[in-house]
Write a protein that binds this DNA or RNA. Sequence first.
DNA 1: AATATTTTTGACCATTTGGTTAAATTTCGC
DNA 2: GCGAAATTTAACCAAATGGTCAAAAATATT
Lengths: 205, 205
Amino acid sequence: MSKIQKDKTTEERILAAAKKIFVQQGMAGARMQDIADEAGINKALLHYYFKNKEQLFEVIFMEAAGRLFPRINEIFLSDQPLFEKIERFCSEYISIVLENPYLPLFVLNEINRDPDYFLGKVWKGKNVPQPEKFLAQIEKEVAKGTIRRISPLNLLMNLISMTIFPFVAKPMFQKNLGLDEWQFRATMEQRKKEIPKFIIDSIKK
Amino acid sequence: MSKIQKDKTTEERILAAAKKIFVQQGMAGARMQDIADEAGINKALLHYYFKNKEQLFEVIFMEAAGRLFPRINEIFLSDQPLFEKIERFCSEYISIVLENPYLPLFVLNEINRDPDYFLGKVWKGKNVPQPEKFLAQIEKEVAKGTIRRISPLNLLMNLISMTIFPFVAKPMFQKNLGLDEWQFRATMEQRKKEIPKFIIDSIKK
DNA sequence: AATATTTTTGACCATTTGGTTAAATTTCGC
DNA sequence: GCGAAATTTAACCAAATGGTCAAAAATATT
């Protein structure tokens, strides 16, 4: 039981509750009863708004995935210069995830359970990922001689890893490095600039 | 149902089955019946060897965590020079995880569900993590002028992130970048040397 | 071979859990 | 205010699930 917002509509309260429970417990661990309790309503009413657990889950998952994946695609598709792209990605991505630190682990976890199903849902339609452009851009910079010779694939992995992983391992980092909530946030704020600097220092010629 | 090893003892078959199911489905998603089936035995026999789900899970979890955490602690505690440490960590860690690519996500996920409980189990006794030494070592190198000024915390996060995250996001990377199993492995083999090079290029003065 | 011990099984139980139903209550259109 | 529609609830149901038990089968001990 937590604070039940009286101003929100019932459906909004259900979605907020479902998000909290699903993100915390995963699809398998989440209980419809817990979601109902969290929303301050009856379980039957839950099924009045969402016909079953799977459908409710899919709404939550797609909303979560929808916040994370389009941004990754942006760095593939935009027309900016490489270094600007890297800076923008880190800065914007960290901002988004700081508001929902547990989303990445949640999404990666469900993808892991059934990659084809979930990635099929996420990347449907014209939204398929096209990393070719970004990878080609890196190769072009290598050819121009502005950056050292590096495998584009590795550079991409490095960028995404350094940006996202600290959130995935948040409890571990916090506990092992003794960071409270505030210190963790501050560190991630720093990293908006530290990561691009780290990368550029490594590859710039 | 999969191949049931006749040469292994029943207990070993149970542990292998439990590992497969738990790592794939997580604690909440795993079914005792599925573990029994996978081991080619009766559910009652499962409880004859392990008194309940939680106990069986803990055996699996501790075995998994025991493979991942001590290595991280090593980079904190060993006496090697910084660059060697970084190289050794990447190389050894990737080797270990290549044999069980799904362990990191599994462990991080369960830690996330109950950080204090699980991290308490993992780091019990004299095995508590002591990052101070590693962080101090970085600061010393900065002072000596061998590497540029960088926040030790950020460097540590970068190292661990680049090493582990590709495994956590394995299905996503594979699907979105079109890597089959073999190509993924080859990429990670490359990264044993690419990551240290990437880091050292960034911080060496 | 006979007996004691360990391992394995099928049948069963209690609880949890997702989901339904019919009735009650509230809200809305008039 | 009144009937209809939408919202909310309590009570239930069936299937799934973790766990038990007594008997059977296999193995070890003498």
